[in-house]
Simulated assay, not measured.
Amino acid sequence: MVGPGRPQIVLFGSSIVQFSFSDGGWGATLADIYSRTADIILRGYAGWNSRFALKVLDHVFPKNAVIQPSLVIVYFGGNDSTHPHPSGQGPHVPLSEFIDNMRKIGEHLLSLSDKTRVIFLTPPPMNEKQIQLVFGDAIRGRRNDLCSPYAEALLNLCKEINVKGIDLWTAIQQQDDWLNTCFTDGIHFTPKASEIVVKEILKVVREADWKPSLYWKSLPVEFPFNFDVPDSISLCDLELARNEQLEPPPPGTARM
């Protein structure tokens, strides 16, 4: 392990997670925000569903690990909710099984330590016309009306097992012209959509009553900024200012 030790924040999921470290991606932005306070660890697997995730859960998150993550942000559901293929093959997972799988994932993660926190991200909406334009017949069975029940059921599960849930289905659709600004191919996120994801995550982490807090401003900064050497620019102030646009609005402020 590279020291000093920091809190570990693990991103676990399918392509929405794997691709999040691309330029302008939400995972890359979180890594930037937490660059002096925590390690953002990527465990994303394109094409996977919750059924696949269960097969590797003990390998990715072993209960006997010396260091356990402080926070795990989980995304599955977009592949699970695709229309069933007549052959029975493909990524589709029935809704009842999806919820059972996510319950097992959540309970396993919560059992890692009494300080491990969990956030579930719901399936986001999609641009069906853009999917057809980009992929043609190579990808079929992706529809907004199929995603919605998975998102709703996942949020209900979050309340039941006491994990935080982020409703990406709603958050993205509240943006102006979301169909044309939030997707690179109808499924995966543009920097605009990734910014929405980051703001939603920061809002949840800031408002959570977790002890210790995992909000980036509350975590100790690794090493002094300038070891008390006088500087015309305060590096600490610069560090705070550069992420100001991603700060969640104060409670009660209308979403823009």
Rank of each mutant, 00 (worst) to 15 (best):
D167K: 02
R103N: 12
N180M: 12
I233Y: 08
L112E: 01
E107V: 14
N156Q: 15
K63G: 13
E107S: 12
S96V: 15
P230Y: 10
E207K: 13
V72K: 03
H188A: 09
R103W: 11
D145R: 07
P7K: 03
F223Y: 15
K217V: 14
W48T: 12
E244C: 10
P230F: 00
N162S: 15
P230E: 03
D176S: 15
P84N: 05
T116N: 03
P249M: 12
G88L: 00
Q132C: 06
S232E: 13
R117E: 15
F227E: 14
H188L: 13
T253S: 13
G141F: 00
L11Q: 03
N144H: 10
G186S: 08
S70A: 14
L121H: 01
I67S: 02
I67W: 03
I105C: 07
V60M: 06
S96E: 14
D176Q: 13
N180K: 14
I33R: 02
I33C: 01
I166P: 01
F76D: 14
N156T: 15
G24M: 03
R36T: 02
L238R: 10
I161N: 05
V60Q: 05
S194C: 04
M256I: 15
V204R: 08
A65F: 01
P220D: 00
V93E: 11
S87W: 01
L240W: 13
